[in-house]
Design a protein around this nucleic acid. Structure first.
Length: 725
DNA sequence: GGGTTAGGGT
């Protein structure tokens, strides 16, 4: 029977437990093999020896939680408690089974996911499992696409969609149960939703909340969602923890015996060692950047060619293992889609696939059939400095949670092995988790949305992990400068409300809100849309094509005014071609051909069109914005200057001026450089510029999406922000 | 006169 204050739940029915040993451990974790430690012979190029190994415990064991059979317990616990904290690795049915249990007893269930693809895939899988048509009882709503009816009993959605739904219905009365999935990722959106749901839970005692996480500290979540006053000693918590067993295969961990001086080289060496000394099975190696991956790939491809050649004359490796061929594949976000799919394609029998990846494979992409994981111990992590308003991206040591997540990628289809390119002592020193995104990113957009939901005092809002006060204050300052909030921090009627509704960063939203006044709504829409996409220009790995692409860009598009006006020109040219043909299929073909000729990415342009249509509906439809009429000739330079001023009227806090050392200074003192990717990189340096985004690498801070401006414009457009000096 | 981008999302 349940105790009043359960530390661990003890249900009466013993048969509900999965088979366990007398000491409570789970069976598969026992009997570690004794002879599988990998040692490296003395002629190894790097002095790199693995000496320690043990099994990676299941998450439930790590957090010392009991494991239960699911359905009855989920339902039983949610009858007793308002919030259920569900812990378990991916693959244990948290995301697919639990929503169905809840739906079967009559709940209207909403399941949130951080990514569009996951939401859509889960909806498909659950609908299929139930033998139903997608969009009927089981639906999804993600990004701009939705397949659902108001009657749908289970809806998968991205977190942002649920936040939007709160605008229309603040207490989410359309759902009786909310499942927050993948909470361990701690995205900005997840944290805000957790805060908001806690607030709703206080008002709607009948709303059930399930918080599902792979690795995050269960007690932390339980405390956060406990609505009982802690001073009330007899009070019973309103939240409870349950764990589900996921992974079915154990993973052996190996640590490097000595610190690794060069983890790219060590990764290559380890791949080769595994290939020649370990049984067949694919390898997944984590590195931090595209550059590192390319460098590792070059060496590995050379090895693979030699290896595959040698295999024509041999059956066995010197180690005695059967010789197999090797296929090396790269995996990172900016890789074109058709090359990302390569990791899913199974290769020939007797070919070992080696995937070298960034942390994209830690969360977003599942590489199937991985048996060996190589973890370099680092990743690139962004950190926002509120003092200067700059986001920097630098190589940082991972957290223990990351390390566990990476290792977990190995044991999905069979026993797995994880090689950590750092010592066990180094592992022990790693932080338990990375600070949540909320605490290291720009908050201005999120705060604007919270204000629009009626949460005025954001400093008192209960975040799961409160962000530093200076981050909140810096965001409020930006919003005040943009006139999205007034002096006391209330949302302004003329701008704030509309800005919050636009799915854009506040500066970009402000540009759009001002565009009627400058008589350039259409141009501002195109610019805003293109600023939302990445990679308008096709990329090549060096060579002749790369030079041709750069030439094309310079000759056809680059303008002295900068990247933003260039993007506008590209969009206009593209639309001219798209609209010149009435036959849709022929128009598409012509657009594709034009893009290919101009080295422009067709899919990205189409995405921009889609985004622009969405924005246009809001701006012209819902807000009813109209262009102010300008008298007289309104062409060429006059119009262009108005467009530029309109852009600046949103982005004025991101202006910079040329300093004596030929770098730039931001308004808040940051030392800035023109990105080599910008139109303005090769031109004579303009005295004043503005930029839409900025990112700092280890040594330099680069401005991207730039535009030249006049100093006088700043005084004219933002007199409340700039003073004559 | 200098040389680049972990991953998401409304």
């Amino acid at each position: 029977m349940l105790k009043t204050k359960p530390q661990f739940i003890r249900p009466g029915d013993e048969t509900l437990y999965p088979s366990r040993n007398k000491d409570g451990t789970i069976d598969t974790l026992l009997n570690p093999s004794t002879d599988s430690a990998l040692t490296i012979d003395s002629d190894s190029k790097t002095n790199f020896v693995y000496n320690r190994y043990h099994h990676l415990p299941y998450e439930a064991q790590r957090q010392k939680l009991p494991v239960f059979q699911y359905r009855n317990h989920v339902l039983y616990l949610l009858e007793k408690y308002q919030t259920l904290i569900l812990i378990g690795e991916t693959g244990c049915g948290k995301s697919t089974q639990v929503p169905q249990y809840l739906h079967e007893i009559g709940h209207k269930v909403c399941v949130t996911q951080p990514r569009v693809t996951a939401a859509v895939m889960l909806a498909c899988r659950v609908a299929e499992e139930r033998g139903e048509i997608l969009g009927d009882q089981v639906g999804y709503a993600a990004g701009m696409t939705a397949m659902r009816t108001p009657e749908s009993g289970i809806v998968f959605m991205t977190e942002g969609v649920l936040l939007r739904e709160m605008f229309a219905s603040p207490l989410l009365m359309q759902y009786s149960c909310i499942v927050l999935d993948e909470v361990h990722e701690r995205t900005q959106m997840t944290d805000v939703l957790m805060g908001l749901l806690k607030k709703i839970a206080k008002k709607r005692k009948n709303l059930k909340i399930v918080v599902s996480s792979a690795t995050m500290d269960a007690e932390f979540l339980k405390d956060f969602f406990n609505l009982t006053d802690k001073r009330e000693t007899a009070g019973v918590s309103t939240s409870v923890i349950m764990s589900m067993q996921g992974r079915t295969y154990p993973i052996e961990l190996f640590y490097s015996q000595e610190p690794v001086p060069d983890y790219v080289k060590a990764t290559v060496d380890t791949v080769v060692k595994i290939h020649e000394n370990e049984p067949f099975g694919d390898i997944l190696a984590f590195l931090t950047s595209q550059e590192e991956i390319q460098s590792a790939l070059e060496t590995l491809q050379m090895y693979a060619e030699q290896n595959n050649d040698k295999n024509m004359h041999r059956k066995y490796f010197p180690s005695g293992f059967q010789a197999s061929n090797m296929l090396v594949v790269a995996m990172y976000g900016s890789l074109p889609h058709y090359r990302q799919i390569k990791v899913h394609q199974s290769c020939d029998k007797n070919v070992r696939k080696v995937v070298v990846s960034t942390n994209i494979s830690e969360t977003s992409i599942t590489v199937p059939g991985v048996v060996y994981v190589i973890d370099c111990g680092f990743h690139k992590l962004p950190y926002f400095d509120p003092a200067v308003g700059v986001e920097s991206l630098s190589v940082t040591a991972i957290s223990k949670n990351n390390a566990i997540q990476r290792a977990g990628r190995a044991g999905r289809t069979s026993r797995g092995k994880c090689y950590r390119l750092y010592t066990e002592e180094e592992y022990d020193k790693l932080p338990p988790s990375v600070p949540p995104e909320m605490c290291r990113s720009d908050l201005s957009s999120m705060i604007l949305q919270l204000k629009a939901l009626g949460i005025n005092n954001v400093l008192r809002f209960t975040f799961p992990t409160p962000p530093p006060a200076k981050c909140l204050l810096s965001a409020l300052e930006t919003l005040y400068a943009l006139k999205g909030v007034d002096r006391v921090g209330n949302l302004t009627q003329d701008f704030g409300t509309n800005m919050a509704e636009l799915p854009l960063k506040p500066m970009c939203a402000k540009m759009l809100c001002n565009s009627g006044e400058f008589g350039c709504i259409d141009e501002a829409l195109s610019i805003a849309a293109l600023l939302q996409v990445d990679g308008v220009f096709s990329k090549f790995n060096g060579g002749r094509e790369n030079i041709a692409a750069k030439m094309s860009r310079r000759n056809n598009f680059e303008v002295a005014e900068g990247d933003i006006i260039m993007y506008l020109n590209i969009y206009d040219s593209y639309m001219k071609i798209k609209k010149s043909l009435t036959d849709e299929r022929r128009a598409m073909k012509t657009c594709k051909e034009w893009c290919q000729k101009m080295y422009i990415n067709y899919k990205v342009m189409e995405k921009a069109c889609e985004i622009r249509n969405g924005l246009e509906k809001l701006v012209k439809g819902k807000f009813g914005m109209e262009n102010q009429v300008y008298e007289g000739a309104d062409l060429g330079t006059a119009k262009c200057e108005r467009i530029m001023k309109c852009v600046l009227s949103g982005f004025f806090p991101q202006a910079a001026y040329l300093s004596v050392d030929s770098s730039y200074r931001g308004i808040r003192g940051a030392k800035l450089h023109i990105s080599p990717d910008s139109c303005l990189f090769a031109t004579q340096q303009p005295k004043w510029v503005m930029f839409a985004s900025v990112q700092s690498t280890d040594d330099k801070t680069y401005m991207r999406e730039m535009m030249t401006i006049q100093k006088e414009w700043l005084l004219e457009i933002a007199p409340h922000y700039y003073k004559e000096t």
